[in-house]
Structures are given as C-alpha cells and as structure tokens.
Computed example of a mutant assay.
Amino acid sequence: MRQKPFEYRFRAPCHLLIAAEVAERYDGETFVEGLPRSTLRNFTGKLTFVPAGHDFHGSQKPRTLNRTIYFYIDPRGPLADPALRFGELEFRPRLFFYDHDLWQTALKLKSQVESSGAMLRQYAEALGILLSHELVRINSDATLCETVTHGGLASWQRKRVAAYIEEHVADDIPLATLAELARLSPWHFSRSFKQSFGVPPHKYHARRRIERAKQLLANRDLSVTAIAFEVGFSETSTFTAAFHRLTGQTPSKYRRNID
C-alpha cells in the first residue's frame, strides 16, 4: 500500500503460488529454500512457487506500488484429482519464472474472486482443479498424461446429476457436490459431464436457470424481479444480463413475444 521498504517471511504446510502483476524494486533480495537468492529488480509478470514446508523470505525497497496475487494451495484439498496424487508429490521450488498457461489460469482465478456476479463458484472450482494440473505439469517439465474417459457419464449418472440440478436450479451448487453424486473426482466428472452434455457443468446449470425463467415469464402475474430471485439471481440487472447472453433478448422482450 506504500512505497516503503519492507521484509517478509513465509513457511506453511500449504503450497504458495505468487503471480506478480506489477513488481519493481530499487533494492532487495528474494530467497526460496532450495534455490539461490535473487536480487532481480523487475519481476513484473513473473511467477514464484514455494512448496509446502519450504522457507520463503526476502526484502525490498519498492519502486512502484506492487500488485501481487497469492494462492495458498492445500496439497490434500477436496478438489485435487486423486489420479494426480497431488498430496504425495514432491514439488520443486521455482523463483521468478513464466509459464503462459499457469499465468492465464491464475489471472482467471483472480477475476472470479473479484467478481460479484452469479454462477461463478463452479467455474472457480474448475479453475482450481486446472491450477493443480498445471502445477504438476510444470513440476515434471512435461505435459501431464491424463486418463481420458471416452464414454462420458453413464446413464444413471446423467439422470442423477440432471435431476439434482433441476431440483436445486436456483442454488449455488458446488462442483464437488455434483461429482460426489456421480461418484467421480471433480476433475474426471467435469470432463465426463462435458462429453455427455456438450458444455461444462456451470454452463449447463446457467442454461437450466434461464429455461426455468422462460417458463416463469409466461406467468404475467410475476414481475421480472420476482422471477430473477426465483431462479437464484440476487439482482435483476445480473439476471437480465445472463438472460440476454443466452437468448439474445431481455426478459421483458421475451415476455412480450410470448403468444
């Protein structure tokens, strides 16, 4: 918040991923256990990865007001794909590096955290899963070989998940809940769901909300605001934007065109 010299130190049972959007210093150094110290002055656009249990400390005299994103990652978190064995891997530290895919995923996660719109939780969870895969990929310095499910969800899984979404269409449904219904890990569930329904879970859920809204719009006794609340939107403007995005019309215009 201020351009004054400062020091920092970190060591924890979780991994730490740092994405420096703006970071310049007149002087200082950065140390990650297992790597040489760095006195790099400009590390804007650089990533740093501190594995769980590693010391991370440094100091700097900032040249600008830094803007940095910190992701604290539980090695045995509930969204980690079991096939990755994420909690069992020995990760290597990395200091001031760049990886396009990891950087883009980090920025997308930041955007979801800052957004106040609806239907974002599942997408954010999916990005969290993707982040774990990206970390495994860069740790091995090779493209992660994944097991691909060719057949999508089984019939009973499709029916069970679709019925649950319909029943809770107005709710914020965690990805982990849907995956548990299908008895799959969140990662494999997301892949199989898209193969079966043609879209990711969060987009399918969004579409079902709008379809429910269309049904309610036929009842002219209900206001657009009441319908927005009924299908899970906290603001009419957010509902109108989502409806227009998926139908090309505002709710009011759609209602006027109903015979």
Rank of each mutant, 00 (worst) to 15 (best):
Gly152Thr: 13
Thr105Phe: 00
Tyr70Leu: 13
Gln122Val: 04
Arg121Leu: 10
Glu167Arg: 14
Gly152Phe: 12
Thr105Asp: 08
Ala83Trp: 09
Phe71Pro: 04
Gly77Cys: 04
Val148Ala: 02
Cys145Arg: 12
Arg85Ser: 15
His168Glu: 01
Leu107Ser: 02
Tyr72Gln: 08
Phe71Ile: 09
Val148Leu: 14
Arg94Ala: 14
Ala162Lys: 01
Asp81Val: 00
Glu114Leu: 11
Gln112Tyr: 09
Lys110Met: 12
Arg92Gln: 07
Ser116Glu: 10
Gln157Leu: 06
Leu144Lys: 11
Glu146Asn: 03
Ala106Phe: 10
Arg121Asp: 11
Asp74Ile: 07
Glu167Phe: 06
Leu153Asp: 01
Arg67His: 12
Arg160Glu: 05
Asn139Tyr: 00
Glu134Asp: 14
Ala163Gln: 05
Leu107Pro: 03
Trp103Arg: 05
Asn139Trp: 09
Glu146Ala: 06
Ala83Leu: 03
Gln104Ser: 11
Leu130Gln: 12
Ala126Asn: 11
Lys159Met: 03
Pro75Thr: 01
His133Gly: 07
Gly128Arg: 06
Gln157Asn: 03
Leu131Gly: 03
His168Ala: 00
Arg158Ser: 08
Arg92Trp: 07
Lys159Tyr: 09
Phe96Pro: 02
Met119Val: 04
Cys145Glu: 10
Asp74Val: 01
Leu89Arg: 14
Glu114Ser: 11
Tyr70His: 14
Gly117Tyr: 13
Ile138Gly: 06
Ile165His: 12
Glu166Lys: 14
Ala83Lys: 10
Arg76Asp: 15
Pro82Arg: 09
Ala106Pro: 08
Leu130Asn: 14
Asp74Lys: 08
Arg85Lys: 10
Gly77Ile: 06
Asp141Pro: 00
Glu166Asp: 14
Phe91Lys: 04
Ala118Trp: 05
Tyr70Lys: 09
Leu84Lys: 09
Val148Pro: 01
Asp101Ser: 06
Leu144Trp: 10
Pro78Lys: 02
Arg158Ile: 05
Gln112Ala: 12
Ser132Leu: 07
Glu125Ala: 05
Arg121Ala: 06
Asn66Thr: 15
Leu65Ile: 11
Glu114Ala: 12
Ser155Ile: 14
Ala126Cys: 07
Thr143Met: 13
Leu127Val: 07
Ser116Trp: 14
His100Asp: 15
Gln112Thr: 08
Ala83Ile: 01
Gln122Ile: 04
Ile129His: 01
Phe71Val: 05
Arg137Phe: 00
Lys159Gln: 15
Val148Gln: 08
Ala106Val: 09
Leu89Tyr: 13
Glu166Asn: 03
His168Cys: 03
Leu65Pro: 12
Thr143Ile: 10
Arg67Met: 08
Trp103His: 09
Phe91Ile: 00
Phe91Glu: 05
Pro78Arg: 02
Ser140Val: 10
Asn66Pro: 13
Leu130Ser: 15
Ser155Gln: 11
Arg67Phe: 04
Ser140Ala: 13
Leu109Met: 04
Leu65Glu: 11
Tyr98Asp: 03
Ile138Met: 04
Arg137Asn: 05
Thr68Met: 03
Phe96His: 06
Tyr72Ser: 10
Met119Tyr: 11
